[in-house]
Design a protein around this nucleic acid. Structure first.
Length: 376
RNA sequence: GGGGAGAUACCAAAGUGGCCAACUGGGGCAGACUGUAAAUCUGCUGGCGCACGCCUUCGUAGGUUCGAAUCCUGCUCUCCCCA
């Protein structure tokens, strides 16, 4: 997998690049819609391509492993074929579920022992079998199996967890390098930096991760409840160490402002459930600020969802109609809101790329951050 | 015409002497959501100050009682059954 940097902003650490996979090129900085269980919730593949202009989507090892299960995925010929998506896919390893489903699991040296949230059945994820599963899924980018520490997290636990993640990384890389893709397209394996909000741990983790020569590197364990300043500080520390010529992926982030701040600190890839989940719950991100479409003030506002919005739904439907749909819990409301938000996110990173190329990213970013803070 | 049941906040529906400004659900209003166990969750929802408190509420008019949404009487209205 090849990564080529095209331009630096010059005033910040922002840069543009192209990541080339066997399923096509990804222009960075990029936002990757989350499609946990083989679907970007509420958005079909055609709209994802033609309207949202998604270049890559996520899948989740934990969820796909439980349902439909690896047997089905293998029979289908991998996730791409199963869901009929011929652009790149990145799969999270299940490390986040180790965090979010903490009540149902136990961490041991060998891996994470957990019970399915669906039927209570017992399973074990190890750094090795998580690679195997992601081979079967056929993700273009395979994520290391890590522990995403919670916040707050005391320094002793953060260190132990980080060290475990590092030992798991070594095992995961070994398994990955010993095995082959199943479907004829190339796959790559991204390690993940941990270390909670502790600068020394983050440095140590970034150095450890960077000591492996991989196609890209991820930063995990952030945006789990810590103040944003701490998150930004950790990104800065880590990005000083991660190789400049490789893509950097900030996992699970974030708000549009977080993304702009991340780009300006040298992050190339982002993913987050926010545009889809918050969209389903009535929150719209626009160029002029945030809209809670459920608020009564939109009840009789028949203006377009967003003037000059990036999605066709922005001009086709009114705020009043979308409000009605969301308030009435009509499925179409969730679909429209998800399309709108995803289109906005992809517009945001596309615009960021243009501004970086022009060398005007810094001022544009500050202007946008100002607008994005507004509650309409 | 005869017999029976009932009227509680926006709606539905608990409550049958003090623990009731009144359970609960819906609706309404607002908030949360960051590698998705989330089309989910939380709060508020008589008035005024909005913390403590005070004032006015359970069809309506009276009455009994230290005290009533709860007991008694009149009135109004609604529903059901029989003719």
């Amino acid at each position: 997998m090849k990564f080529e940097i095209n331009a630096f902003d010059g005033h910040t650490k922002a840069r543009t690049g192209i990541l080339t996979t066997d399923h096509g090129q990804i222009k960075t900085p990029i936002f990757m819609p989350v499609g946990t269980a083989g679907s970007v919730k509420g958005v079909n593949q055609r709209d994802l391509i033609s309207d949202v202009k998604a270049q890559i989507i996520l899948g989740n090892t934990y969820h796909l492993f439980l349902r439909p299960g690896i047997e089905t995925l293998e029979m289908a010929g991998g996730l791409h074929k199963f869901i009929n998506w011929n652009k790149p896919v990145l799969t999270d390893s299940g490390g986040y579920q180790v965090f979010s489903l903490a009540d149902n699991r136990k961490l041991k040296e060998d891996g994470a022992h957990f019970r399915s949230h669906i039927d209570g059945s017992k399973h074990v994820f190890t750094p090795e079998n998580v690679v195997d599963i992601q081979r079967i899924i056929g993700a273009d980018i395979v994520m290391a199996f890590d522990e995403c520490t919670p916040f707050p997290c005391d320094v002793d636990y953060a260190r132990k967890s980080m060290e475990l993640t590092h030992r798991w990384l070594k095992r995961g890389i070994k398994r990955f390098d010993e095995t082959e893709p199943l479907y004829g397209h190339q796959q790559t394996y991204f390690p993940i930096v941990q270390g909670s909000v502790y600068k020394d741990l983050r440095i140590q983790s970034a150095e450890t991760i960077a000591s492996y020569d991989r196609d890209g590197y991820a930063i995990g364990g952030l945006s789990v409840g810590e103040p944003v300043e701490e998150m930004y500080a950790m990104i800065e520390v880590v990005n000083e160490i991660l190789p400049e010529n490789k893509p950097r992926y900030l996992m699970g982030v974030g708000t549009p402002v977080n993304i702009l701040e991340g780009i300006s600190r040298g992050i190339d890839m982002f993913d987050c459930v926010m545009p889809t989940r918050n969209g389903r719950n009535g929150m719209l991100f626009t160029k002029e600020g945030i809209i809670n479409i459920k608020n009564v003030k939109w009840k009789n506002d028949f203006s377009p969802i967003e003037e000059n919005g990036a999605s066709f739904v922005d001009h086709k439907f009114s705020k009043a109609y979308l409000r009605h749909l969301i308030v009435s819990k009509e499925i179409l409301g969730a679909q429209i809101a998800s399309l709108h938000n995803l289109s906005f996110y992809l517009w945001l990173v596309t615009e960021a790329r243009h501004k970086i190329t022009e060398g005007t990213f810094a001022s544009w970013k500050n202007e946008m951050i100002h607008k994005l803070a507004v509650r309409l």
